[in-house]
Simulated scan of single mutants.
Amino acid sequence: MYKNIIFDLGGVVVDFNPRDFLMDYFMNKSAEDAVYDLTFGSKEWEDLDRGDITRAAANRIMLENAASCGRTFEVQTVIDEWEKILRTKKTTIKTMCKLKLAGYRLYYLSNIAADTMENIKQRDFFPLFDGGIASCDVHVNKPDPKIYTLLMQKYHLAYEESIFVDDNKQNAQAAYNLGITGILYKNKKSFNRALGLCGIHLTNRRAPMPAPQQETKSNS
Rank of each mutant, 00 (worst) to 15 (best):
Ala158Asn: 11
Thr216Tyr: 10
Lys154Glu: 10
Lys89Gln: 09
Lys146Asp: 15
Arg19Asn: 06
Ile112Gln: 10
Arg205Gln: 12
Gln173Lys: 02
Ile6Gln: 01
Met27His: 11
Glu118Gly: 14
Ile112His: 02
Ile53Gln: 13
Thr77Lys: 08
Asp8Glu: 02
Ala67His: 12
Ala102Arg: 15
Pro208His: 03
Met117Asn: 14
Ser68Met: 11
Gly182Val: 12
Asn219Asp: 09
Ile112Glu: 01
Val165Lys: 00
Lys100His: 15
Met96Trp: 05
Thr91Gly: 09
Asp8Gly: 01
Phe21Tyr: 14
Tyr25Ala: 01
Ile180Asn: 11
Gly182Ile: 06
Glu64Gly: 02
Asn204Met: 09
Leu150Asp: 10
Thr92Ala: 03
Gly10Ile: 00
Asp15Lys: 04
Gly11Trp: 00
Tyr185Cys: 02
Phe26Leu: 12
Asp15Ala: 09
Arg193Asn: 12
Ala134Cys: 15
Ala34Trp: 11
Leu106Asp: 05
Arg193Met: 04
Glu160Asp: 11
Leu101Val: 06
Thr54Trp: 13
Asp166His: 01
Arg206Asp: 13
Asn17Met: 07
Ile120Leu: 13
Leu101Met: 13
Met117Asp: 05
Ala67Thr: 15
Ala66Asp: 06
Gly70Glu: 15
Gly132Trp: 08
Asn65Leu: 06
Glu44Pro: 09
Gly51Glu: 02
Phe21Glu: 10
Glu83Arg: 07
Glu32Ser: 10
Lys154Leu: 15
Thr95Ala: 07
Phe191Ala: 00
Val138Arg: 10
Asn219Trp: 09
Ile133Asn: 10
Thr72Gln: 12
Thr39Lys: 13
Leu9Ser: 10
Thr95Tyr: 05
Ala57Lys: 14
Lys146His: 11
Pro18Arg: 07
Glu83Met: 07
Gly132Leu: 13
Glu215His: 13
Val78Ser: 06
Asn187Ile: 03
Ile61Glu: 08
Ala134Phe: 12
Tyr159His: 07
Ser162Arg: 00
Leu48Thr: 05
